[in-house]
Amino acid sequence: MTPNHNSWQLAGEILHSRLLLGSGKFASAGLMQQAVMASGTELVTLALKRFNPGQPSDDLVTPLQQAGVRLLPNTSGARTAQEAVLAAQIAREALGTSWLKLEIHPEPRYLLPDPRETLKAAEQLVKLGFVVLPYCSADPLHCKQLAEAGCAAVMPLGAPIGSGQGLQNRAMLEIIIEQATVPVIIDAGIGRPSDAALALELGASAVLVNTAIAVSSNPVAMAEAFRHACGAGALAAQAGLAASQREASASSPLEPVFARLLETL
């Protein structure tokens, strides 16, 4: 077992879990806290729309602080760059963190990120000193532009939020990972632990999961399953996957034997 396959670097910080969790959609704050603990995550998103700046120790923030995780406020609910930048500034003041998950998805059916507003907000927020982690389309050039704007990572979607469809954008995600100069965190659409394992096998730095855990009939067990899957996927990526091929290949290949035989000719 390699000791460090779960470790990776984000904005100069070393993290020891490649699983990020969303704190929304849970049946209760207590259940959310237990799932967070079981997942082994160190980074949990917090929807600003549910946060009350007048009561920083509310029933969402306190359980997360008790769990000892780093808070990652997100701007979900913001409809434009202007709203996201405004919300981010309030979050930084109230929560004392400049880390921000930038989310602008003004379309209600598929909750797809708005590329124009996201890039605009990212440019402004980086200038304001934020560590910006943008939820974005699985578009390689868009991801490049976000990285150039100074984002600390990119968070392309595997499939629409909450859909649990897995890595529908796989071909584009592979290009994004291949070209990445910042960590790639696959966000949205991860429905099963095997999807998370696949994302990490493909070379993503981390995954973010929320719905798949929160609406499971046993969120705590599901969080643990995702922890194992992320560990397995990361270890596999580090070990190096065997190339896949169409035809069968024997476990003890004959080619070396033939090669030696041929050498005797």
Binding site: L48, K49, R50, F51, N52, P53, G54, G77, R79, T80, Q82, E83, L86, A87, I90
Partner: peptide, 11 residues
Amino acid sequence: WQDWHPVLGRA
């Protein structure tokens, strides 16, 4: 109880 705190404002 709240889905977008008043202090966050709207554009």
